[in-house]
Every structure is written in C-alpha cells, then in structure tokens.
Design a protein around this nucleic acid. Structure first.
Lengths: 175, 175
DNA sequence: TTTTGTTTTCAAAAGTATTTGAAAATTCTG
DNA sequence: CAGAATTTTCAAATACTTTTGAAAACAAAA
C-alpha cells in the first residue's frame, strides 16, 4: 500500500513527454521554433541515434518538418549525423553535454543577434551631437553600446574558457 | 567639400529611427513583442516623458496598441507613469540606466521562464529509474537540472549584487 | 448630473510563422 | 542504366500572434 507521504513517481513515457513539451515551451518563449526544440529534446533523451522517420512518427509531425528541423539543429551544431555501414538511412544524435550545448547556443545567438546589434549601435553612435535633444539620445546609445560590448566580451570569455580548460582536470569540477 | 575619408554622420532623426527599428528586431528575435520593444526604445531615447497619444503618432500605431504595450512595459518595471498637476493626460518615461533595465529584464524572464522550467525538471527527476532505457533519460535530466540550477543561482547573485553594491563607490567602476 | 476628455477593452481583421505533403532530386543497388 | 529507397524542397494550407478601432468604462470639469 502507498502512503500519501510517498513521492509520486511518474512513469518514463510520461516524463519524456513532459520534458519534450517543456523544452519546446521554453524555446518558443525565447524566440526559437518550438518543433525544432522538441526534436532536440527527443534526441537529447534518446538512448540511441534516431532516423528522421522515427522522429517524425515519435513527435507526430510531417516528414518535411522532421527533415527541416533536423537540418536546422545540425546548422546550430547541436545534432550530428551518424552513417552506418550497410544501411541507407541516416541516423541523428544530439550532443548531450549541457555545457557544450549551452556554449553552442551562445555562439549561435551571439553571432546572429548580438553582433549585428553592436554594428548598428556603432553606426548610430556616429550621429551628430550638437543640440540638447540629441544629447539624451547619444547618452543612451553610448550606455547601451558600452553594456552590449561588455556582454559580448563576457560571452567570448565564457566560450573560450571551455576550450582552454578542456584538458585541465580542474575544469571537471567547475562543470 | 566632404572628403571620402570623412566619417558619414547620419542625422538624429535617422539615428532614432534606426535605433527603434533594431531594438524591435532584437526583441522579436528573443521572443518579445516587437512593438513593445519599439515603444520601449522610443521612451528610452525621449528627452521628456510622453503621453500614450504621442507614442501612438510617433510610431504610427493604433491607440489600443500604444496603450497595451505601455501597460506591458509597466508590468515589466521598465516604464513608469508621471502625473502632472493640472493635467488630465498621463505621461510615461523609461528607466534609462542600462544596468537597471537589464536587471529588470533578467528578473522578469527568470520568473516567467527559468523557474517554471526548474519546477518541471524536479517533477520529471522523480521518474522511476530502473531500466537501461530510463538511464540515459535520467542522466540528461539530472545534467540539465544541475545546469539550470547553477544558471539560476548566478542570476540571483547578479541581481542581488546590484542592490548590495548600490551604495558602494566601487560599484560605479564595475558599471 | 451631464458633458467632455481620456483610457481601456476585446472581437474581428491583418499579418507572421509554421507545417504539410506531394513532387523533385538524390543516392544507393542490382 | 533502371528501379527502389531515401532525402529535400517549397507552394499552399493551417495555425498562431499582433493590431486595429469602435464602443465601453472611467474620471475630471462644468
């Protein structure tokens, strides 16, 4: 008999479902395609590499959708292809080390979004500043530019740290 | 005569336009309503507080849209109301200190997205782990839980640091 | 209380993003 | 090379998000 104080264990199927759902939800909150994140989640928790067809039927999406999102994940460097000798089908697996995953996501978003913004801020910073009206404007732009530059540097350091410390035994403690 | 080596200065109107546009673009990349970010950008670079009507005509959006997004920005704690004695209209201004702005955004997204994810991960972590299939699953969940927990702590520290160091003269150097 | 100026709401319309699925392209196999 | 298996593409359909604007609610002034 189960006492009411016992923890309630969900079964594995339920757990996987819930994880795929939340991972997708979080991604779409952050401006990333929900299905792409669900494919990612599915591959993250898969014990073995999967084919595009398996992903398609597991998530109940179309063949095209499955294919396109797997490609996108490979572009992001989060998923890789595995070829098996004697088999036509392509298998896919996700990078499972969270540190590497996060590093890869940072690299991508930095390049796609932060850096273009920095470029625009630099262009704007060249605005003529000769009237009191432009003073408030330039002050804010300078402040944002400074801040974004710092953020960019910090992310660079974070990303480089990983590479430099990979061979260092101390690094495993930090992860 | 302008030499081709001279820097090209854009005028202030152009600069403001460009800033509003990029701020909106960046926000929508990150899953935030573009117009909300444009209203925010407009108020960030405004020399004086503005009415909802001024925002409406400046950005060429509807009255309802202007009103709703100003409310949303107040919910996020990024914009505040100013009441002027003898005037019916409400004026709005944005917090201009970037450190405070970023802090506020972190607080909001942490509460809205990171914390619910942590809760789900904890629920999922209670899944029964007794077969090899669930082993891979549990290992990934544990890793993500650990990572997200660390991220959450780091953000807490970042946010608390601000409050604790506000009165500290050293703090101004860090900003 | 009525009028007038102002803000808020929300159903419908417009605009965006995502997904589908069938056809085309590709690649392996005999 | 022809045929079979598999992957890729993309126009059209669907689903989702945002915006509009007119009406309702509200609040100050007359």
């Amino acid at each position: 008999m189960r006492k009411s104080s016992d923890p309630i264990h969900m079964d594995i199927k339920e757990g996987k479902q819930k994880f795929i759902e939340s991972w997708g939800k979080m991604a779409s909150d952050w401006g990333i395609n929900r299905t792409m994140a669900q494919v990612h989640a599915l591959l993250l928790i898969a014990a073995e590499p999967m084919t595009a067809d398996q992903v398609m039927s597991e998530l109940d999406i179309s063949r095209g959708n499955s294919n396109m999102n797997i490609r996108a994940l490979m572009d992001w460097g989060l998923v890789h292809k595995q070829l098996r000798t004697g088999e036509r089908k392509e298998y896919f697996y996700a990078e499972k080390d969270m540190w590497v995953v996060v590093r890869q996501i940072i690299l991508n978003r930095k390049k796609r979004e932060l850096e273009p913004m920095l470029k625009v801020l630099d262009e704007i910073a060249g605005v003529e500043n000769n009237c009191p009206e432009s003073e408030s404007f330039c002050a804010v732009i300078r402040d944002i530019r400074k801040f974004s530059g710092k953020a960019n540097q910090t992310l660079d350091a974070l990303v480089k740290a990983d590479v430099a410390w990979l061979g260092n035994p101390l690094f495993s403690l930090l992860r």
